[in-house]
Design a protein around this nucleic acid. Sequence first.
DNA 1: CCGATCATGTAAGTGGTTACATGATTAT
DNA 2: ATAATCATGTAACCACTTACATGATCGG
Lengths: 197, 197
Amino acid sequence: MSLEYAILGFLNYRPFSGYELKRVLDESIHHFWPADQSQIYKSLSRLADRGLATVEVIAQEDRPNRKVYHITQEGRKEFLQWVGRTPDSEELRKPFLIQVFFAGMLSDEEAIAVFEDKAAELRGVLERYAAIDDSPTHGEKAGVPPRERFFWYLTLECGTWAMQRELDWLEKTIERIRNKEYEAGPRILPPPQSKES
Amino acid sequence: MSLEYAILGFLNYRPFSGYELKRVLDESIHHFWPADQSQIYKSLSRLADRGLATVEVIAQEDRPNRKVYHITQEGRKEFLQWVGRTPDSEELRKPFLIQVFFAGMLSDEEAIAVFEDKAAELRGVLERYAAIDDSPTHGEKAGVPPRERFFWYLTLECGTWAMQRELDWLEKTIERIRNKEYEAGPRILPPPQSKES
DNA sequence: CCGATCATGTAAGTGGTTACATGATTAT
DNA sequence: ATAATCATGTAACCACTTACATGATCGG
């Protein structure tokens, strides 16, 4: 569903083939919505079935014909309605937390190792995010107006914030385990301060 | 996969039937891993197929027989290995960010409305988390040792932090749109401070 | 009388992944 | 030689969701 809307969003800029879409999706929304190639093709034909896009077949020799998809009036209407809608409530599945939940079955050292590994992974992701940030796609690309770029940038910023905060939490938690603060029972850290930096 | 490990984790405490599991999963890990009833039954029979659990059929009249699952030696081994393993890298699909990405197609007022709606949703989730926190399951339940409860509590705390931080970000972002800060191009907020409260 | 509780499952469908198939052209 | 680029897709599979089916018992 979400992927279909993302594709519709790009078709709203200009027509695309499936192949082209794979490339632009990879360098735009990949950090919060990795899109598989075969999933893109499926979504495109579904959009065409639903009348939200039309196919223009461009004949080619020596390689398969290109299929260029154009958004339709209904497509544009449906898309714009969707962008302005109140967002669906989010997925909350965090496999890592299952490990945390049962970490009581491990020794302090083993549990800390799990948290450290997780922290290392997050640091890696943060580095990759920083790299995207410096890449031409976010930054000063093409003739994209600043307001548009602002919202593109927000998606990166949101991810970075979330990661950085989770990393902070991991580091504090590792400290707490080191200090055996669990002996006092839970509820050691105050809930994050709502306002206030 | 994750659900299977979660189930294995509970079977490691004591034997359970599918029906019982549905109940305990709902009041323990539901906030980061909602488990569907039919998915639980499937996972249980898969665990039995893989030899990680055995089935004890308890005959009953007037209602279907109960099937009580016991963890096996291999099950216990596989589970303990898994808890201590370095965590898999996480899913990063955030449908909301697709909306943000294309929010440039909306007016300031429409975009702000989307962010406000998202903020309202998060506030709702935070309230529900606070309610879980006060419920007997987290808190001082049963004869569960404090170290165990500490890790249970961590799963809630992690979620709360993440939510609260996303909410902070949303509120700041709404302010920035109101002030039309996008006119200066992106990169307005400094990346979240790494250390420092 | 209605709905909850106990207790199991099947069937169909969604959204996504992994692997495979084809095959010419161009760059290293 | 080899890998990447261009360009399309299918097939099988996976985790999960939604809806359905059965049917007794018990409390409001």
